[in-house]
Design a protein around this nucleic acid. Structure first.
Length: 435
RNA sequence: GGAGGGAUGACAGAGCGGCCGAAUGUACCGGUCUUGAAAACCGGCGUGGGCUUGCCCACCGUGGGUUCAAAUCCCACUCCCUCCGCCA
């Protein structure tokens, strides 16, 4: 949620910044108007309430002095004022709710250096990485045997069974088997081991309350992309960011605890309602995938370094896996609701011949902290909202795809990179059954 | 799922419907004393919001209700603890 006080203080700045993301000026003016109305009504209601309280106090005093007539008179005056106060408060509540609903739909103010743009086509590619690049090697050329899409490799090697997945849960719910399932497990283990020295490992619930989903900004705006378990008023989490952000909801952290860094691997559920029919083949876009998330609560001063650390870790894993990737600076039009700045990592999939998003590293400023009410006590003794930063490292379904394509050999088998040897053991090379 | 008990400030723990935003203790911060420290003593010590910056308002698990007035009474819900049942 954006800062109402800031909107009051510098409305033109906020409006201009949000206009870059396509927020209508009239929407902001409406909010400014509601805020003014709210405060005016609030004053009136509070004035009445103060009077009722004062009269009530006097009633008690009169009773103690056995002044029954006076008490009776004060009571009836107070009763009348009380009725007025109730009505005034109802008006306050109505406006406050309206204001809050509108405010929840407003996205975060983008960082000044976020490039302008309408959609993902305007994202700015800042750099690429591939094996041997630092030694001057040219961008890799992929051989014909690497130009096979992972869904074909999956069937050929018996490690990805999309049909069974569809049979169980519908399309876009993948089922991995054998070495394919083990590869997925290995990737999570590999990443968590890499982070655990500096990030506390968390295993959160896979479902969250509505309130929890609100704190990250996934609700109310993206309702259609979330899986709902209506009977129990729960939602399937779309990312570990949701539980991690709310872990310290309504709490005040000590500045000495910051940055508080957490990591978690969870299943991530996404309905992909707006993407029906797009990129549906194989693992390009699925309803459920595993992802390791890195997360930090920090002070404003620590945010930049925390963001850089997460990005470096995500890149470090991609480099360790020897996958080609590129780094994108997301434009204003493609930024997630809650984010002030996001850097995406896209891995190159030679078999599909496309770049696939496998990480999104975001700085939310205090936008999520304001919703979740996560604060810290400063050295001066005051409280302030924390900044939240998070990023994937990494989302495994697409990594799985890029790995089996990149490391496919001419005989059709897949020889995975050595970093996975501790986890894959004797299955580092995946061959056709019976061959 | 059934029965009972509980939820108050950082923690512990009081609180006949009316000067209760809340006693007291501990912790914490400052001061006196001391060579220093401890002890003792003195003072301070919740979070938000509004505006005329001095005041006002809200918050005692959550949401309703009763009342001139609710931490205190009533109703519903949530969570925690104990016991029973079921169960990976």
């Amino acid at each position: 949620m954006i800062d109402l006080a800031q909107l009051r203080r510098e409305p033109e700045f906020v409006k201009a910044a949000l206009a870059r993301r396509g927020v209508e000026l009239s929407t902001m003016d409406e909010i400014i108007g509601l805020d003014a109305e709210h405060r005016q009504l609030l004053q009136e209601a509070e004035r009445l309430r103060a009077e009722v309280k004062e009269l009530s106090r006097q009633v008690g005093e009169a009773r103690r002095n056995n002044e029954e007539d006076k008490a009776e008179e004060l009571t009836s005056t107070s009763r009348e004022l009380g009725d007025q106060e109730r009505m005034a408060s109802q008006r306050v509540d109505a406006v406050a709710q309206d204001l809050r609903e509108k405010l929840l739909m407003i996205p975060n103010i983008p960082a000044p250096d976020v490039p302008d743009g309408r959609d993902e086509n305007d994202n700015v590619e800042t750099r690429r990485w591939w094996v041997g690049m630092d030694q001057g090697a040219a961008f890799p050329t992929y051989a014909a045997h690497q130009r096979v899409p992972h869904w074909d490799i999956g069937i050929e090697l018996g490690i990805l069974d999309l049909e069974s997945g569809a049979k169980l849960a519908g399309s876009m719910f993948p089922l991995y088997r054998g070495a394919g399932a083990r590869l997925l497990r290995s990737l999570g283990f590999f990443a968590l081991n890499a982070h655990m020295a500096d990030y506390e490992e968390i295993r959160p619930p896979s479902f969250a309350l509505t309130e929890t989903m609100m704190s990250t900004g996934h609700l109310p705006k993206s309702v259609d992309d979330m899986y709902a378990i209506e009977r129990d008023d729960l939602w399937a989490i779309p990312t570990a960011e949701v539980p991690l952000t709310s872990m310290n909801r309504d709490e005040i952290l000590e500045e000495s605890q910051l940055p508080l860094r957490l990591t978690a691997q969870t299943a991530c559920f996404r309905r992909e309602a707006g993407a029906a029919g797009r990129d549906t083949r194989g693992l390009l876009r699925v309803h459920e995938f595993d992802k390791v998330e890195l997360f930090a609560y920090c002070t404003p001063d620590q945010a930049e370094a925390a963001h850089a650390d997460i990005l470096a870790r995500a890149e470090g894993l991609l480099q360790a896996l020897g996958l080609t990737y590129r780094v994108l600076d997301l434009c204003t039009g493609d930024l997630g609701t809650s984010s002030a700045r996001t850097v995406d990592l896209e891995v190159f999939s030679p078999g599909v011949d496309r770049w696939l998003e496998v990480s999104s590293v975001s700085w939310f400023r205090d936008f999520q902290a304001r919703r979740a009410n996560v604060r810290y006590r400063t050295a001066a003794g005051t409280t302030a909202l924390v900044h939240t930063v998070n990023g994937s490292a990494l989302a495994w379904a697409r990594i799985w795809a890029a790995l089996v394509e990149t490391y496919r050999l001419s005989d059709g088998s897949v020889k995975l990179p050595d970093v996975l040897a501790p986890y894959m053991g004797d299955q580092l090379t995946i061959t056709k059954k019976g061959s």
